[in-house]
Protein backbone atom coordinates (compact mmCIF):
# COMPACT_ATOMS: atom_id res chain seq x y z
CA UNK A 1 0.00 0.00 0.00
CA UNK A 2 2.94 2.27 0.59
CA UNK A 3 3.81 2.11 -3.12
CA UNK A 4 0.28 3.14 -4.01
CA UNK A 5 0.33 6.18 -1.80
CA UNK A 6 3.74 7.10 -3.24
CA UNK A 7 2.20 7.12 -6.67
CA UNK A 8 -0.67 9.25 -5.42
CA UNK A 9 1.67 11.81 -3.94
CA UNK A 10 3.82 11.88 -7.06
CA UNK A 11 0.77 12.24 -9.30
CA UNK A 12 -0.69 15.07 -7.26
CA UNK A 13 2.65 16.83 -7.28
CA UNK A 14 3.00 16.39 -11.04
CA UNK A 15 -0.53 17.64 -11.61
CA UNK A 16 0.01 20.67 -9.40
CA UNK A 17 3.20 21.45 -11.29
CA UNK A 18 1.52 21.09 -14.69
CA UNK A 19 -1.48 23.21 -13.69
CA UNK A 20 0.74 25.92 -12.24
CA UNK A 21 2.78 25.78 -15.46
CA UNK A 22 -0.41 26.25 -17.46
CA UNK A 23 -1.04 29.64 -15.88
CA UNK A 24 2.59 30.76 -16.04
CA UNK A 25 3.60 29.70 -19.56
CA UNK A 26 3.29 31.96 -22.61
CA UNK A 27 0.87 30.94 -25.37
CA UNK A 28 3.37 29.29 -27.67
CA UNK A 29 4.83 27.17 -24.86
CA UNK A 30 1.36 26.12 -23.72
CA UNK A 31 0.64 24.81 -27.19
CA UNK A 32 4.00 23.11 -27.44
CA UNK A 33 3.44 21.42 -24.08
CA UNK A 34 -0.03 20.23 -25.10
CA UNK A 35 1.33 18.66 -28.28
CA UNK A 36 4.37 17.29 -26.47
CA UNK A 37 2.27 15.64 -23.77
CA UNK A 38 -0.30 14.29 -26.23
CA UNK A 39 2.37 12.75 -28.43
CA UNK A 40 4.09 11.39 -25.32
CA UNK A 41 0.95 9.33 -24.66
CA UNK A 42 1.45 7.65 -28.03
CA UNK A 43 5.12 7.01 -27.27
CA UNK A 44 4.09 5.68 -23.90
CA UNK A 45 2.20 3.03 -25.83
CA UNK A 46 5.48 1.99 -27.44
CA UNK A 47 7.15 1.96 -24.03
CA UNK A 48 4.42 -0.40 -22.75
CA UNK A 49 5.40 -2.80 -25.53
CA UNK A 50 9.11 -2.12 -25.16
CA UNK A 51 8.94 -3.46 -21.63
CA UNK A 52 8.13 -6.81 -23.19
CA UNK A 53 10.86 -6.38 -25.79
CA UNK A 54 8.70 -5.32 -28.74
CA UNK A 55 8.99 -2.10 -30.70
CA UNK A 56 5.99 -1.07 -32.77
CA UNK A 57 6.73 1.02 -35.84
CA UNK A 58 3.02 1.47 -36.42
CA UNK A 59 1.79 3.58 -33.53
CA UNK A 60 0.76 6.09 -36.18
CA UNK A 61 -2.15 3.75 -36.92
CA UNK A 62 -3.91 4.49 -33.63
CA UNK A 63 -2.70 8.07 -33.50
CA UNK A 64 -4.38 8.56 -36.87
CA UNK A 65 -7.55 6.68 -35.93
CA UNK A 66 -7.91 8.81 -32.82
CA UNK A 67 -7.38 12.03 -34.76
CA UNK A 68 -9.74 11.06 -37.60
CA UNK A 69 -12.46 9.93 -35.21
CA UNK A 70 -12.30 13.39 -33.66
CA UNK A 71 -12.23 15.08 -37.07
CA UNK A 72 -15.04 13.05 -38.59
CA UNK A 73 -17.30 13.22 -35.56
CA UNK A 74 -16.82 16.98 -35.42
CA UNK A 75 -17.37 17.48 -39.16
CA UNK A 76 -20.14 15.02 -39.93
CA UNK A 77 -21.95 14.40 -36.65
CA UNK A 78 -21.42 17.85 -35.13
CA UNK A 79 -19.91 16.34 -31.98
CA UNK A 80 -17.31 18.62 -30.46
CA UNK A 81 -17.34 17.59 -26.81
CA UNK A 82 -13.82 16.53 -26.00
CA UNK A 83 -14.90 13.95 -23.40
CA UNK A 84 -17.21 12.22 -25.85
CA UNK A 85 -14.63 12.39 -28.65
CA UNK A 86 -11.94 10.91 -26.45
CA UNK A 87 -14.32 8.15 -25.36
CA UNK A 88 -15.29 7.24 -28.91
CA UNK A 89 -11.66 7.23 -30.04
CA UNK A 90 -10.63 4.97 -27.20
CA UNK A 91 -13.44 2.57 -28.05
CA UNK A 92 -12.50 2.60 -31.74
CA UNK A 93 -8.85 1.90 -30.92
CA UNK A 94 -9.87 -0.75 -28.40
CA UNK A 95 -11.88 -2.51 -31.09
CA UNK A 96 -9.18 -2.30 -33.77
CA UNK A 97 -6.38 -3.07 -31.33
CA UNK A 98 -8.45 -6.01 -30.11
CA UNK A 99 -8.54 -7.41 -33.64
CA UNK A 100 -4.87 -6.89 -34.52
CA UNK A 101 -3.36 -7.40 -31.07
CA UNK A 102 -3.84 -11.18 -30.88
CA UNK A 103 -2.66 -11.52 -34.50
CA UNK A 104 0.52 -9.54 -34.01
CA UNK A 105 1.22 -11.12 -30.62
CA UNK A 106 2.80 -14.09 -32.40
CA UNK A 107 5.53 -12.01 -33.96
CA UNK A 108 8.75 -10.68 -32.51
CA UNK A 109 11.48 -8.24 -33.35
CA UNK A 110 11.67 -6.94 -36.87
CA UNK A 111 8.63 -8.97 -37.97
CA UNK A 112 6.45 -7.32 -35.36
CA UNK A 113 7.87 -3.90 -36.23
CA UNK A 114 7.28 -4.35 -39.97
CA UNK A 115 3.78 -5.81 -39.57
CA UNK A 116 2.68 -2.99 -37.28
CA UNK A 117 4.23 -0.54 -39.72
CA UNK A 118 2.40 -2.06 -42.66
CA UNK A 119 -0.95 -1.77 -40.88
CA UNK A 120 -0.47 1.93 -40.36
CA UNK A 121 0.68 2.39 -43.97
CA UNK A 122 -2.48 0.62 -45.16
CA UNK A 123 -4.54 3.17 -43.26
CA UNK A 124 -2.39 5.93 -44.78
CA UNK A 125 -3.06 4.55 -48.25
CA UNK A 126 -6.81 4.26 -47.70
CA UNK A 127 -7.15 7.76 -46.29
CA UNK A 128 -5.02 9.26 -49.07
CA UNK A 129 -7.36 7.77 -51.65
CA UNK A 130 -10.57 8.84 -49.95
CA UNK A 131 -11.29 12.12 -51.62
CA UNK A 132 -14.51 12.46 -49.64
CA UNK A 133 -12.33 12.82 -46.55
CA UNK A 134 -10.05 15.34 -48.22
CA UNK A 135 -7.52 12.81 -49.56
CA UNK A 136 -3.91 13.67 -48.84
CA UNK A 137 -4.87 17.23 -47.88
CA UNK A 138 -6.92 16.03 -44.93
CA UNK A 139 -9.66 17.98 -43.24
CA UNK A 140 -10.02 20.70 -40.65
CA UNK A 141 -11.37 19.97 -37.18
CA UNK A 142 -13.55 22.39 -35.27
CA UNK A 143 -12.37 23.60 -31.87
CA UNK A 144 -13.44 21.29 -29.03
CA UNK A 145 -15.98 22.11 -26.31
CA UNK A 146 -15.65 20.99 -22.72
CA UNK A 147 -19.02 19.71 -21.45
CA UNK A 148 -20.87 22.70 -22.84
CA UNK A 149 -18.07 25.21 -22.24
CA UNK A 150 -16.83 26.61 -25.56
CA UNK A 151 -13.69 28.68 -24.91
CA UNK A 152 -11.76 30.73 -27.48
CA UNK A 153 -8.25 32.10 -27.76
CA UNK A 154 -6.05 31.63 -24.73
CA UNK A 155 -8.88 30.07 -22.70
CA UNK A 156 -9.11 27.35 -25.35
CA UNK A 157 -5.37 26.65 -25.29
CA UNK A 158 -5.44 26.58 -21.52
CA UNK A 159 -8.49 24.29 -21.30
CA UNK A 160 -6.96 21.89 -23.76
CA UNK A 161 -3.69 21.95 -21.89
CA UNK A 162 -5.36 21.32 -18.53
CA UNK A 163 -7.44 18.50 -19.99
CA UNK A 164 -4.26 16.95 -21.40
CA UNK A 165 -2.44 17.39 -18.08
CA UNK A 166 -5.16 15.64 -16.11
CA UNK A 167 -5.30 12.76 -18.60
CA UNK A 168 -1.53 12.46 -18.70
CA UNK A 169 -1.20 12.32 -14.93
CA UNK A 170 -4.09 9.88 -14.55
CA UNK A 171 -2.68 7.59 -17.22
CA UNK A 172 0.81 7.89 -15.78
CA UNK A 173 -0.48 6.81 -12.35
CA UNK A 174 -2.54 3.92 -13.77
CA UNK A 175 0.36 2.70 -15.89
CA UNK A 176 2.82 2.93 -13.01
CA UNK A 177 0.49 0.75 -10.98
CA UNK A 178 0.10 -1.51 -13.98
CA UNK A 179 3.84 -1.79 -14.53
CA UNK A 180 4.25 -2.97 -10.94
CA UNK A 181 1.34 -5.39 -11.17
CA UNK A 182 1.61 -9.04 -12.07
CA UNK A 183 0.97 -8.33 -15.76
CA UNK A 184 3.56 -5.57 -15.78
CA UNK A 185 6.21 -7.71 -14.18
CA UNK A 186 5.47 -10.61 -16.52
CA UNK A 187 6.08 -8.16 -19.39
CA UNK A 188 9.55 -7.49 -18.08
CA UNK A 189 10.11 -11.21 -17.74
CA UNK A 190 9.03 -11.73 -21.35
CA UNK A 191 11.69 -9.28 -22.36
CA UNK A 192 14.39 -11.29 -20.54
CA UNK A 193 13.33 -14.83 -21.33
CA UNK A 194 10.13 -15.85 -23.07
CA UNK A 195 10.69 -19.55 -22.66
CA UNK A 196 10.90 -19.40 -18.90
CA UNK A 197 7.75 -17.29 -18.72
CA UNK A 198 5.87 -19.97 -20.62
CA UNK A 199 7.26 -22.69 -18.35
CA UNK A 200 6.12 -20.71 -15.34
CA UNK A 201 2.61 -20.90 -16.72
CA UNK A 202 2.10 -17.35 -17.97
CA UNK A 203 1.07 -16.70 -21.57
CA UNK A 204 3.54 -14.61 -23.53
CA UNK A 205 1.05 -14.25 -26.34
CA UNK A 206 -1.63 -12.95 -24.02
CA UNK A 207 0.80 -10.51 -22.41
CA UNK A 208 1.83 -9.12 -25.77
CA UNK A 209 -1.76 -8.87 -26.98
CA UNK A 210 -2.82 -6.98 -23.86
CA UNK A 211 0.14 -4.62 -24.19
CA UNK A 212 -0.79 -4.01 -27.82
CA UNK A 213 -4.36 -3.11 -26.92
CA UNK A 214 -3.19 -0.78 -24.13
CA UNK A 215 -0.84 0.97 -26.52
CA UNK A 216 -3.64 1.22 -29.08
CA UNK A 217 -5.84 3.10 -26.63
CA UNK A 218 -2.98 5.38 -25.62
CA UNK A 219 -2.35 6.12 -29.30
CA UNK A 220 -6.01 7.00 -29.76
CA UNK A 221 -6.07 9.45 -26.87
CA UNK A 222 -2.86 11.09 -28.13
CA UNK A 223 -4.41 11.35 -31.59
CA UNK A 224 -7.63 12.98 -30.41
CA UNK A 225 -5.82 15.63 -28.41
CA UNK A 226 -3.29 16.36 -31.15
CA UNK A 227 -5.98 16.52 -33.84
CA UNK A 228 -8.10 18.91 -31.78
CA UNK A 229 -5.14 21.07 -30.77
CA UNK A 230 -3.79 21.36 -34.33
CA UNK A 231 -7.25 21.78 -35.81
CA UNK A 232 -6.39 19.70 -38.85
CA UNK A 233 -5.99 15.99 -39.54
CA UNK A 234 -4.43 14.39 -42.59
CA UNK A 235 -3.20 10.91 -43.56
CA UNK A 236 0.31 11.98 -42.54
CA UNK A 237 -0.73 11.00 -39.00
CA UNK A 238 -0.44 7.36 -40.08
CA UNK A 239 2.69 7.81 -42.19
CA UNK A 240 5.80 5.91 -41.18
CA UNK A 241 7.79 9.04 -40.38
CA UNK A 242 5.17 9.96 -37.78
CA UNK A 243 5.41 6.48 -36.25
CA UNK A 244 9.18 6.79 -36.40
CA UNK A 245 9.00 9.96 -34.33
CA UNK A 246 7.15 8.10 -31.58
CA UNK A 247 9.82 5.41 -31.61
CA UNK A 248 12.41 8.19 -31.44
CA UNK A 249 10.81 9.51 -28.24
CA UNK A 250 10.46 6.01 -26.78
CA UNK A 251 14.16 5.35 -27.40
CA UNK A 252 15.08 8.76 -26.06
CA UNK A 253 13.14 8.02 -22.87
CA UNK A 254 13.95 4.35 -22.44
CA UNK A 255 11.53 1.88 -20.88
CA UNK A 256 12.46 2.43 -17.25
CA UNK A 257 10.52 5.53 -16.32
CA UNK A 258 7.13 6.98 -17.25
CA UNK A 259 7.87 10.65 -16.55
CA UNK A 260 10.92 10.31 -18.78
CA UNK A 261 8.63 9.71 -21.77
CA UNK A 262 6.87 13.01 -21.21
CA UNK A 263 10.13 14.82 -20.65
CA UNK A 264 11.63 13.28 -23.79
CA UNK A 265 8.62 14.21 -25.89
CA UNK A 266 8.67 17.81 -24.72
CA UNK A 267 12.43 18.01 -25.28
CA UNK A 268 11.95 16.74 -28.82
CA UNK A 269 9.27 19.36 -29.50
CA UNK A 270 11.52 22.09 -28.09
CA UNK A 271 14.59 20.99 -30.04
CA UNK A 272 12.57 20.78 -33.22
CA UNK A 273 10.91 24.11 -32.75
CA UNK A 274 14.09 26.02 -32.02
CA UNK A 275 16.31 24.22 -34.51
CA UNK A 276 13.72 25.00 -37.17
CA UNK A 277 13.96 28.64 -36.32
CA UNK A 278 17.72 28.95 -35.98
CA UNK A 279 18.82 26.37 -38.58
CA UNK A 280 16.10 26.43 -41.25
CA UNK A 281 18.27 24.51 -43.68
CA UNK A 282 19.74 21.90 -41.37
CA UNK A 283 17.14 21.28 -38.65
CA UNK A 284 16.82 17.60 -39.54
CA UNK A 285 20.54 17.18 -38.95
CA UNK A 286 20.29 18.86 -35.55
CA UNK A 287 17.61 16.34 -34.57
CA UNK A 288 19.72 13.45 -35.82
CA UNK A 289 22.83 14.57 -33.94
CA UNK A 290 20.72 15.06 -30.83
CA UNK A 291 19.44 11.47 -30.96
CA UNK A 292 22.93 10.11 -31.65
CA UNK A 293 24.34 11.91 -28.63
CA UNK A 294 21.57 10.55 -26.39
CA UNK A 295 22.06 6.98 -27.64
CA UNK A 296 25.82 7.17 -27.16
CA UNK A 297 25.74 8.74 -23.71
CA UNK A 298 22.56 7.17 -22.27
CA UNK A 299 21.98 3.82 -23.99
CA UNK A 300 18.99 3.10 -21.74
CA UNK A 301 17.43 6.46 -22.41
CA UNK A 302 16.69 9.48 -20.26
CA UNK A 303 14.75 7.24 -17.92
CA UNK A 304 17.95 5.61 -16.74
CA UNK A 305 18.88 8.92 -15.13
CA UNK A 306 15.72 9.00 -12.98
CA UNK A 307 15.90 5.30 -12.28
CA UNK A 308 19.48 5.22 -11.15
CA UNK A 309 18.89 8.08 -8.79
CA UNK A 310 15.81 6.48 -7.28
CA UNK A 311 17.57 3.19 -6.62
CA UNK A 312 20.52 5.01 -5.12
CA UNK A 313 18.19 6.87 -2.80
CA UNK A 314 16.26 3.92 -1.43
Amino acid sequence: MKALSDIRVASLLALALLVAGGFALPDWALFLMTIGLAKALVSLGIVVQMRAGLVSFGQGLFFCIGAYVAGLMANFAGLTDIFVLTGISVLACLAIGGIFGPLLANYRGIFFAMLSLSLSMILYGILSKMNSLGGTDGLNVAAPTFAGYAPEGRALSLSLYLYTSVIVVAIGAVLRTGFDSQHGLVSLAVRSNELRVEYLGASVRRTNAINYVISAMLGGIGGVITGLAIGHVDPEYAYWTTSGEFVFVAILAGYLSIPAVFVASIILELVRSFSNLYFPNTWQMVLGVFLLVIILTLPNGLGSLFHRRREGGS
Partner: peptide, 11 residues
Protein backbone atom coordinates in the same frame (compact mmCIF):
# COMPACT_ATOMS: atom_id res chain seq x y z
CA UNK B 1 3.71 18.03 -42.59
CA UNK B 2 0.73 20.16 -41.65
CA UNK B 3 0.97 19.35 -37.94
CA UNK B 4 4.43 20.81 -37.76
CA UNK B 5 3.43 23.84 -39.80
CA UNK B 6 0.63 24.69 -37.41
CA UNK B 7 3.13 24.58 -34.54
CA UNK B 8 5.65 26.67 -36.46
CA UNK B 9 3.00 29.19 -37.35
CA UNK B 10 2.01 29.56 -33.71
CA UNK B 11 5.66 29.96 -32.77
Amino acid sequence: GATKQVQEFRN
